[in-house]
Amino acid sequence: MARKCAICGKGVVVGMQVSHSHIRNKRTWAPNLQRVRAVINGAPRRILVCTRCLRSGRVKRAI
């Protein structure tokens, strides 16, 4: 469960960083993942969730 949202599956994206002089470097973009306690199958568990899923209410937080 590394660098991937447990709800939507959003993960690391690879691409090219292009400077003003058009020098290209490979780089990665990581999602903004937060470790939260969520209710999964009726029990609280710690999962990695992206902030988009947290904001949109797709995660039922555990108290």
Results as ranks from 00 to 15, higher is better:
38 A>K: 07
25 N>L: 05
42 G>T: 08
41 N>Y: 11
16 M>P: 03
26 K>F: 10
61 R>G: 05
24 R>I: 09
50 C>N: 01
17 Q>N: 14
8 C>D: 06
8 C>G: 04
1 M>P: 13
42 G>Y: 00
6 A>R: 04
45 R>P: 00
24 R>E: 15
19 S>R: 12
18 V>W: 06
30 A>D: 15
22 H>A: 04
2 A>I: 13
16 M>C: 10
51 T>L: 07
14 V>C: 08
36 V>T: 00
17 Q>G: 11
17 Q>Y: 11
63 I>M: 12
5 C>D: 02
62 A>T: 07
29 W>P: 02
33 L>C: 01
58 R>G: 02
19 S>P: 05
48 L>G: 02
24 R>M: 13
39 V>F: 00
58 R>H: 13
42 G>C: 01
36 V>R: 09
45 R>I: 01
32 N>K: 12
9 G>Q: 04
57 G>L: 01
13 V>C: 09
8 C>F: 14
5 C>M: 05
17 Q>L: 14
44 P>C: 09
3 R>W: 06
27 R>V: 05
31 P>K: 03
49 V>A: 10
49 V>E: 01
55 R>W: 03
18 V>K: 05
36 V>Q: 07
60 K>C: 07
21 S>M: 09
32 N>E: 06
3 R>D: 15
12 V>K: 07
11 G>T: 11
43 A>N: 08
2 A>M: 13
33 L>I: 04
33 L>S: 03
43 A>L: 12
58 R>S: 06
16 M>E: 10
3 R>E: 15
58 R>T: 04
53 C>S: 04
26 K>S: 05
52 R>L: 06
41 N>W: 14
38 A>H: 01
31 P>H: 10
